[in-house]
């Protein structure tokens, strides 16, 4: 096993050498990560395992008495159309927001990478939506879209586009669309931030060499910039996918999961089952299924990331 450099430097001193002999790299590394590891175990791994364990029980909400019921919660859940609809809605929410955020983020970051007047100001301003708290965002949008008092309806009526106010959040389809729009608006700056940071370190000499060889803008982007961006793109997409999949605040605060469960994604369903319907077992089962799903998706991204890194090297 390899040893840390300080061991050889201190090898002349008997106490140090005894100490260094006793602590291998592996042990030292373990000691150094142990505080963080402990926190992860206590606040993440343990609750996750408890959640998995709870998914095999019927739990009395008032007294938390648990009765083992095997896979009944899972069977119950898989029979419910609400679960499948929520899963589908989660996919729609995740795929649409992540893809559009990425495309917009890529475009904006490429634009902000150019030598333009006011670039620094624009770079600062583009982050603004990311700084707005989700609760403020949701309440503001609710107010904007309100059919009796909201400015959006008023504006559409003033332009003669509609003749009477429309309850955009009163329709399951349009409610989900507006939740998606709000999600895109809020989190595109994150993509911009990530990609712009990577663009700063694209080797200029590669681009210049390509230009000398007669490559056009598209070819430079396709064969130099994009491959260079790929590892960051994968990480960004991975993070956005995970975060969006488990996003609760914006989705819930927009329409509380309604109307007609039209904005109920899996996290909102978990909240509904656990805190409103008081069905803790099925709520835990939903969490467990969501965990499996996220692990599978993450593994796919992980393979893609490795591939992107290899190509770059």
């Amino acid at each position: 096993m390899s040893k840390l450099p300080f061991r050889s430097l201190s090898s002349d001193h008997s106490v140090s050498s005894v100490f260094s002999l006793a602590i291998s790299d592996y042990l030292l590394a373990l000691l150094m990560v142990s505080p963080a590891l402990l926190l992860v175990i206590v606040f993440a791994i343990l609750p996750m395992l408890v959640g998995l364990y709870a998914s095999f029980f019927h739990i009395e909400a008032a007294t938390l008495k648990m009765h083992f019921n095997g896979i009944t919660n899972y069977r119950w859940l898989l029979k419910k159309s609400l679960f499948w609809q929520s899963l589908l809605r989660s996919f729609i929410w995740v795929i649409s927001t992540t893809v559009i955020q990425f495309l917009l983020g890529l475009g904006i970051s490429l634009l902000l990478h150019q030598e333009l007047k006011g670039r620094n100001l624009a770079r600062g301003m583009v982050l603004f939506p990311y700084l707005v708290p989700a609760v403020v965002l949701s309440l503001t949008w609710r107010f904007i879209l309100d059919p009796t008092m909201g400015v959006f309806n008023r504006m559409l009526m003033d332009f003669g586009l509609i003749h009477r106010p429309i309850a955009f959040l009163g329709n399951p389809r349009s409610a989900l669309i507006f939740v998606i729009i709000a999600g895109i608006w809020k989190y595109t700056p994150f993509v911009v931030l990530m990609l712009l940071a990577r663009l700063q370190v694209v080797p200029v000499e590669l681009e210049e060499a390509a230009k000398l060889d007669g490559a056009g803008s598209w070819q430079i982007f396709r064969y130099i910039t994009l491959p260079w961006l790929m590892p960051v793109v994968v990480v960004t997409l991975l993070l956005r996918t995970i975060w969006t999949f488990r996003q609760f605040d914006i989705v819930y605060l927009f329409a509380f999961g309604g109307p007609l469960f039209g904005t109920t994604t899996l996290p909102v369903l978990i909240h509904y089952l656990a805190f409103d319907a008081q069905q803790l077992g099925p709520a835990a089962a939903t969490s467990a299924l969501m965990l499996l799903l996220l692990l599978a998706v993450s593994w796919g991204y992980f393979a893609w990331y490795a591939q992107a890194e290899e190509k770059l090297l």
Binding site: A54, A288, L294
Partner: peptide, 9 residues
């Protein structure tokens, strides 16, 4: 990340 989510459970 997923573990944190499951905790909400």
């Amino acid at each position: 990340a997923v573990a944190m989510l499951a905790a909400c459970a």
